[in-house]
């Protein structure tokens, strides 16, 4: 199809090009109308001037933005060291739930309980319970730090979800692959490691990307137990300046990171769909 683009266009292609042009023009016009309405109507609302002043204040944004970026670094750090831990723990839990041998029954039970509990409790509750609970044991520094225990709470919760995704990936690999591996003399464990897991992990990369994006945002939940990351920093500015613009700034910073990752995840998903055809 692609190569024909450079050839002389035939009747069908001319017709399709005309239709494409038409739909592009229609889309442009309807978008322009919608934007015009928003631009005219929103400022007509009674509270607009106040909202504009307290949410979209350019001076406040300029003044607070660098500090917000600094605080965002903490988000990035917490994200960067919890993501690999989540991947490892999630995979281990998935494998634990997938064991067959009767001796490993406790491991299966543990895996099932783990996923049930941490998927069943709201993240913020886990953050509170672990982030406040464990330092409450009176541990010496640095083991009383909310960074550590808050991150652990995130790691535990996300591992539960990630484990379930890995498990669905393992189950998505056709049983005939296992049969082929066993028929060659491989043990169950070798079949899992060399044949099933590599395929399973590849199959779930797009879904796991979505978990990463969610994690990027949920790091902000740690603000409730202490660490001054971007959300808390924005809150501090809000109180200092009696203005909500720092929150909008924080949202912008999040979007700069999450939109590309979302697009990338979509791209991976689309590529995988094509590969499966």
């Amino acid at each position: 199809m692609r190569s024909t683009r450079y050839k002389k266009t035939n009747r069908r292609q001319a017709y399709e090009a005309k239709r494409r042009r038409r739909s592009n023009i229609i889309a442009a016009i309807s978008t322009a109308i919608a934007a015009a309405f928003l631009y005219i109507l929103v400022p007509l609302t009674p509270g607009w001037s106040k909202v504009k002043l307290s949410f979209f204040n350019w001076d406040v944004l300029v003044k607070t933005f660098p500090k917000l970026l600094d605080a965002f670094l903490l988000n990035v750090m917490i994200f960067a060291w919890s993501a690999p831990l989540i991947a490892i723990l999630g995979l281990l839990i998935a494998l634990a739930r997938n064991t067959q041998s009767p001796a490993l029954f406790p491991l299966r039970i543990f895996g099932a309980t783990f996923t049930d509990v941490f998927r069943g409790v709201p993240v913020i509750l886990t953050v509170y319970l672990i982030g406040f609970g464990i330092p409450g044991l009176g541990l010496p520094r640095p083991w009383n730090s909310p960074y550590i225990w808050g991150t652990l709470a995130l790691v535990l919760t996300y591992s539960a979800y990630v484990a379930e995704i890995f498990r669905s990936g393992i189950e998505s690999v056709h049983k005939s692959q296992r049969a082929a591996a066993l028929s060659l003399g491989l043990s169950e464990r070798q079949a899992m490691r060399d044949v099933i897991l590599p395929q399973a992990i590849r199959n779930v990369v797009p879904s796991q990307m979505n978990m990463l994006i969610a994690l990027q945002k949920d790091v902000s939940l740690l603000s409730f137990i202490g660490p001054v990351e971007i959300f808390r920093q924005a809150g501090v500015f809000k109180s200092l300046m009696a203005n909500f613009t720092p929150y909008v700034g924080a949202a912008l910073i999040f979007l700069v990171v999450t939109i590309p990752s979302t697009r990338y995840a979509d791209y991976l998903m689309a590529r995988q769909m094509r590969a499966r055809e």
Binding site: S176, Q177, A179, A180, A181, S183, L184, G185, L186, Q190, D194, V195, P198, Q199, R202
Partner: peptide, 27 residues
């Protein structure tokens, strides 16, 4: 006892050569 299946069941994430070398290496 070797076995070959109707649906080939090659390991899609490995080259043909790696498919054939896996079992001798592991087993």
């Amino acid at each position: 006892i070797g076995m070959v299946f109707q649906s080939f069941n090659l390991f899609p994430h490995m080259t043909a050569l790696d498919n054939a070398m896996l079992a001798p290496r592991r087993v």
